[in-house]
């Protein structure tokens, strides 16, 4: 095991050393990612402040949704967010170089970088989550703790899956990377919303197709005992692992199709 992970550890270690060695620039990146997180929070706050509740969520419940979903997305972004630079890698030939190395291509792409600067944004999400849990008087039972942890874990898995699925599609869309951004960053935006306000097509896309509702919204409803829409049971929040498996299935399919297309074999 140690020798299987050695290439990845060596690479990530070098990346982290390089990033934190440019102190001033790294500090600036940390601050700006903190500010971005705060502005996104302000958006939620401004909207829910104006009314009592939207789609069945009041401000404190919306904070829990934001806390779960945004923490998960930010961790995924920190770990694999650079995969949306795949078109640059393809143009520069970096991807061809991956093909010359004895590791799986996807593992190489994922470990080719890590964005430590997003740590502050994870911090914002996590702080909001804690505040939201306290504001809602969530009692610390084994099941509530488990649900929160499970939701963060599977939420991160779902979001990394989306990044990978988008990367696979970029083999076809080198010049239109913004197309996949609409799913990735549109998904991030959707994840902070109460899914009950969505129209049917939106439910199909962001409720189940790209299961963003399972990263924050549905677990929050289960956690806070709020009514669950879309004919799902009250315990729908516990279904997040299924959503993660589904998303990774899509991601695997997209990645395989994309690399096949790139190599020109039956794609």
């Amino acid at each position: 095991m140690g020798s299987r992970t050695r290439p990845y550890r060596a690479l990530l270690g070098a990346r982290m050393r390089a990033q934190s060695s440019y102190r001033a620039s790294f500090g600036l990146d940390l601050v700006s990612s903190l500010l971005i997180g705060l502005v996104e929070l302000a958006e939620v706050w401004v909207l829910y402040r104006a009314v009592d509740e939207i789609g069945g969520l009041d401000l404190t419940a919306a904070l829990v949704v934001f806390g779960l979903a945004d923490t998960a997305f930010s961790i995924a972004d920190l770990l694999v967010g650079h995969v949306d630079r795949l078109p640059d890698y393809l143009r520069a030939g970096t991807f061809d170089v991956f093909c010359l190395r004895p590791q799986p291509l996807l593992a190489q792409l994922i470990t080719s970088d890590i964005s430590l600067r997003r740590l502050t944004r994870v911090g914002v999400g996590f702080a909001v989550l804690i505040v939201g849990l306290i504001a809602n008087d969530v009692t610390l039972t084994p099941s509530s703790v488990l649900l929160v942890l499970l939701s963060l874990l599977t939420g991160t898995a779902i979001c990394t899956g989306i990044f990978v699925a988008a990367a696979g599609a970029q083999f076809f869309l080198i010049d239109a990377a913004e197309m996949t951004n609409s799913v990735v960053y549109g998904g991030r935006y959707a994840a902070n919303q109460p899914g009950s306000v969505w129209s049917r097509p939106l439910i199909a896309v962001f409720g189940f197709g790209v299961p963003m509702a399972f990263t924050g919204y549905l677990p929050t409803l289960t956690l806070l005992d709020l009514p669950v829409p879309w004919n799902l049971p009250d315990w729908a929040g516990w279904l997040a692992p299924l959503a993660a498996i589904w998303m990774w299935g899509l991601a695997g399919l997209s990645w395989r199709t994309g690399t096949r297309h790139y190599q020109g074999g039956g794609g």
């Binding site: 939207i54 197309m179 609409s182 799913v183 549109g186 109460p194 969505w198 129209s199 097509p201």
Partner: peptide
């Protein structure tokens, strides 16, 4: 495509 996606999402919550 990205603008349209955000348009639908924003319209529903607003």
């Amino acid at each position: 495509v990205a603008n349209a996606t955000f348009g639908f999402l924003k319209a529903s919550i607003l």
